[in-house]
Design a protein around this nucleic acid. Sequence first.
DNA 1: CTGTTAGCGCGTTCAC
DNA 2: GTGAACGCGCTAACAG
Lengths: 328, 328
Amino acid sequence: MVQIKDVAKLAGVSVASVSRVLAGLPVVSEPTRKRVLEAVKELDYRPDLAARRLRSRRSDTIGLVVSDIRNPFFTEVSRAVEDVAFNHQMRVILCNTDEDPDKEASCLELMRDEKVSGVILSPSLKLLSHFTPGDYGFPIVLVDRYERGIEADAVLLENFDAAFRLTEHLITNGHLHIVFVYGAESATGRQRLEGHRAAMLKHQLPVCTEGVKPVEDQAREAALSVLKRSPLPQAVIASSGLILLGVTEALRETRMVIPRDIAVAGFDNMPWTQLVQPGLTVIAQPTYEMGREAIELLLQRIATPDKAMRQLVLRGELIERGSSAARS
Amino acid sequence: MVQIKDVAKLAGVSVASVSRVLAGLPVVSEPTRKRVLEAVKELDYRPDLAARRLRSRRSDTIGLVVSDIRNPFFTEVSRAVEDVAFNHQMRVILCNTDEDPDKEASCLELMRDEKVSGVILSPSLKLLSHFTPGDYGFPIVLVDRYERGIEADAVLLENFDAAFRLTEHLITNGHLHIVFVYGAESATGRQRLEGHRAAMLKHQLPVCTEGVKPVEDQAREAALSVLKRSPLPQAVIASSGLILLGVTEALRETRMVIPRDIAVAGFDNMPWTQLVQPGLTVIAQPTYEMGREAIELLLQRIATPDKAMRQLVLRGELIERGSSAARS
DNA sequence: CTGTTAGCGCGTTCAC
DNA sequence: GTGAACGCGCTAACAG
């Protein structure tokens, strides 16, 4: 194995100079710099990362801790995080928590053991409820989930406003009797519920909700029971992509025709939402952008740890499709 | 920071004994063992991974190199890999290549620099064409993509047979004029094409294919042109989930009714395939299982590097839905 | 601007 | 069964 002293020998300089060149320190003269780089190329020298990390106490690694990478939102976020990290010569290590506080704790310990430069975290409701960024030895940026008043960096959707606009859109189209199916154990779900509630109150309409665990099956079950009610509601809103999937399955099972029998709308512009007849009206989250913003915020935090915490609130886009068309 | 000598001091033993206990070596006496573990707990000692890795020359890290984590197949695989790795106290680092040979090379170099224990790789057609596992300093398990004759561990679908069965299913239902839209730059796509071709030849039917880049847009475009043909084909088969998405979009744009105007079938049982009226017939890949098998094969290879290479070929399940119903 | 040198924290030989 | 001591490959501090 070729190591730094081999490079130093070939270039006729000390190991310190080699180290300086590789670190990009501007204190080396151009001639030495050039000779070192030649020697590096000549020998195909690869620095030993373990040794570097031991000595420098830095890992150049970012942790990504989410509930489930299979959630399309997090899939997209992870892709963005990996892209930016790769461009910054940093690694990403991934951890799935399944919303389980114990597993969250293990993952965060793992990140501490790895001495990660920072973590992008999507916390469970429980963890979020008593979250303090200072409890960990590394900076953390929250993504998707955040509660007002917490002193932490975060990137999130304007959940309240998005749900408000989506609800008003349905009301405008004449759908007044709406059931809001939402993730009861999710910060996001609750915030979207508040936006929905505000819109209904503004129009003096009764609020009718159905809290579910944020799982496709549960949402399907809940939707099936809603669809058996008499009178049938005029519309259903789903507070997340997974729940929208469950609701749509229920609609299909009961052979309901959208929007003739019932209107539908929800969150997350997944590829299939335009395929389901007659197209599903959704709030599209800028998911890739959220991931990119999260890691860039994290990199800034790493660079300047003492700046004030920031919350970046992005706007969702209302995509109107046939599923919420006006009642005739 | 608490380190190994602190533990040794508190337990009243040498650092060597602490190291032996933590490594699980069976040469330590029960009393010392117990006292060491108590001291570890007492001090909440966490071994420094960088130091351990430098010394032991092992990283306990698995690399996952795929074209795009957003491809639902790889999303599921990555979840499986992460689950198993977590249970084995190993880390996963992720790399997206976008099917770009240069990026593949960078990712594999990155893995070498990280001194990963092994890599799970889904190679581009180009990389696969001259792939030799010995070229890298670590074991590699191929997933999803493989070419007969290559001396490498691999986990894949029985592509030929699956495409054969899917095609025969359509033929049985009276769809004789079939267009096969496939990923021309993909090993998987080509193998599935061969299976399709064999089925068509067996029934003495003409083979009609449409090679596309494995991107949703391209598949949509190709399908649109197919749908303009006269006479209209009786069925379309898509060789992957992404292509099936594009084809379905084209069908929707042209207001075709499935299967009255044209029948459809494809690969990958994504959640939305049952939502699109009247449900899409697909070959379901055991994706999670493939990921699990891949990392378990890798762990075995790491444990016993000299055993013969193995290829694990899993069977896809034909899920019949309305989109391929018999012609009336 | 450059070189010398002392550790970073751990695993592992080798004596005992 | 146990401990002392060396060195993994590198960075940073200091001296020149």
